[in-house]
């Protein structure tokens, strides 16, 4: 009998208005519309240039679409008017790969360091924030001038690499902070208790647990580098990276080649995301396989 009142509360016939799933507050509709508009504004322009890149030879920079062909892609590949795009592509990808690896390793180490207070940690932290927010072009010029003073030629794999790291590393470490807040110190203590050396603890416990977060850092590192412009401008030396190539094209080229380049570079970005997400899925599969296999 004492249960009766609680049975009552689920009775839909109760006079008090209860919110059913179909009955959402008015703010839901306002915000849903805002969200839809935001997504539209986010994707609309990009999709329009992807479409426009498939015009034929008569194509212009605005709608309407004139014909359909791969003419501008061909044009892009031929490099007739587009400069050394292929070389820039290759350099950008190599540079981004380099930056990614270094960012992941260094951010992981710094993230581990920052889990505990140590003397001087605040200085390192503010230095990192400073590096993150310093105007990119200023830093680029400083690095360029510094190299000039030392008589070392600037190059994409030396000065530009360093310049990009000064931006991707703080970013990666901030992501590491968020990731590591979920890393419970008890796990490492348990590993130590069971006789693991620090190296074994890192390899067998910390790294596997942090793996998804590290993939996220890698993804950030790659994108930030692949798209980096301000810091690279004065440090890349004689050979351009892709954003620098695109930048010079935006100033000179006024044909849909530009759009074709946009389409291609987006496809590359998506391939990279695809590979990364694939890696995450694969990692999880391996764990899943381990738990269902072995029978």
């Amino acid at each position: 009998m004492t249960n009766a009142p609680s049975v009552q509360t689920v009775n839909p016939a109760r006079p008090r208005k209860r919110r059913s799933s179909g009955d959402r507050p008015w703010t839901f509709y306002v915000l849903a519309s805002l969200f839809a508009l935001y997504v539209l504004a986010l994707y609309g322009p990009m999709i329009s240039i992807y479409i426009l890149s498939f015009q034929d030879v008569r194509g212009g920079l605005v709608f309407p679409m004139r014909g359909f062909s791969f003419y501008w892609f061909n044009e892009l590949v031929m490099q007739t008017r587009a400069g050394d795009v292929a070389g820039a592509f290759k350099r950008s990808i190599c540079l981004a790969a380099l930056v990614t690896v270094i960012t992941v390793v260094f951010s992981f180490m710094a993230g581990m360091a920052f889990r505990r207070r140590f003397r001087g940690d605040t200085i390192v932290f503010y230095m990192m924030i400073g590096s993150l927010v310093a105007p990119g072009l200023v830093l680029g010029i400083g690095i360029g001038l510094g190299f000039q003073m030392l008589g070392i030629p600037t190059n994409w794999y030396t000065s530009a690499l360093g310049a990009q790291l000064s931006w991707t590393l703080p970013f990666g470490i901030l992501v590491m902070f968020a990731v590591m807040s979920r890393l419970n110190g008890n796990w490492e203590e348990a590993a130590r208790d069971l006789g693991a050396t620090p190296a074994q603890t890192t390899r067998l416990v910390v790294l596997p647990i942090l793996a998804p977060g590290l993939v996220a850092v890698a993804l950030f590192g790659f994108t930030l580098s692949y798209d980096e412009f301000a810091r690279t401008l004065q440090t890349a030396g004689s050979q351009n990276t892709l954003p620098l190539e695109i930048w010079s094209m935006t100033l000179n080229v006024t044909s849909p080649v530009l759009y074709a380049l946009g389409t291609v570079s987006t496809i590359v970005s998506f391939v990279i995301i695809g590979i990364s997400l694939g890696m995450i899925v694969l990692l999880q599969r391996r764990i899943a396989a381990r738990k269902s296999g072995n029978q």
């Binding site: 990009m46 993804l219 954003p243 995301i273």
Partner: peptide
């Protein structure tokens, strides 16, 4: 879109706003 080029995203407004 964060994973795509900023410059491309910027110039993509040209066919809309021109």
């Amino acid at each position: 879109p964060f994973w795509t080029s900023n410059i491309i995203r910027m110039i993509s407004w040209i066919p809309l706003l021109g």
